[in-house]
Write a protein that binds this DNA or RNA. Structure first.
Length: 230
DNA sequence: CACCAGGCAAGTA
DNA sequence: TACTTGCATGGT
């Protein structure tokens, strides 16, 4: 392992500790059933969670938050209920394509689907139009409790702003960073990703320049001193 | 008013 | 492979 790699490992571990101390247990994913988590994972694509909540509330009010109901409902009817979450036509199509997949491959049974091995299920999920890497991993980790690290826009931005990476890396490259240097533990990956999203929202959004109150700022000094001493 | 938010697929070069 | 574009609502 190179010096820079060990340094990255150190930063990843220290940042988890700092963020965990700062925010405490975040109890993710917001949503209490695997079904709700999967629906939320698709609806939150490039969308504020606040808007997703409104759409999920619509589904609950219409008693549609079951695999059977979501399999049966026409796409155009579903789209109307999804309006508050934005991209509602696209998302209706994506939800329908997922439930068709669930029916075809797992007899409509989420437990059967989530009983698949992680690698196998990930590949299958990625075949579904509308499920990309982040959504697939969110489903695996948060609905399935499988130890896989979720990478999102916040993760990238935080790593860039804090100098852990210098250029835009592919999804898999960033995921490998975390999974190479941390224990493959679902509760750890769950909380770490939640912490990064919270940090992104509060301290590392696009417009906000690095905030002085960011709980990760002291790590830069730590890392800078490591660099200067080599 | 402009800009942003927990992506993804399809098209182009 | 590496960009670019469309998709859309609601909060700041």
């Amino acid at each position: 392992m190179s010096k820079r790699e060990r340094q990255t490992a150190q930063w990843l571990i220290a940042s988890y500790q700092a963020l965990n101390d700062h925010f405490g247990n975040l109890h993710w994913w917001p949503g209490d059933s695997p079904l709700e988590i999967i629906v939320g994972a698709i609806l939150t694509q490039n969308t504020a969670w606040q808007n997703v909540e409104k759409a999920i509330a619509n589904l609950k009010a219409a008693r549609l938050l079951t695999t059977d109901a979501l399999t049966a409902i026409p796409e155009s009817d579903l789209a109307q209920l999804l309006r508050p979450s934005g991209y509602y036509n696209v998302k209706a199509r994506r939800l329908k394509s997922f439930f068709i997949f669930l029916q075809d491959c797992f007899q409509g049974n989420l437990d059967v689907m989530l009983g698949e091995k992680t690698r196998t299920l990930r590949k299958k999920l990625l075949q579904v139009k509308g499920i990309g890497e982040e959504t697939a991993d969110s489903i695996l980790l948060y609905a399935g409790g499988k130890p896989i690290f979720v990478v999102d826009a916040y993760t990238r931005r935080i790593l860039m702003r804090h100098g852990v990476i210098r250029e835009r890396l592919a999804y898999g490259d960033i995921q490998r960073l975390f999974m190479k240097h941390l224990a493959h533990d679902a509760p750890l990956f769950n909380q770490y990703h939640a912490l990064l999203v919270n940090t992104g929202k509060n301290y590392c959004s696009k417009t906000k320049p690095r905030c002085q109150a960011c709980p990760l700022n002291h790590l830069d000094k730590l890392q800078a001193s490591v660099i200067s001493r080599q």
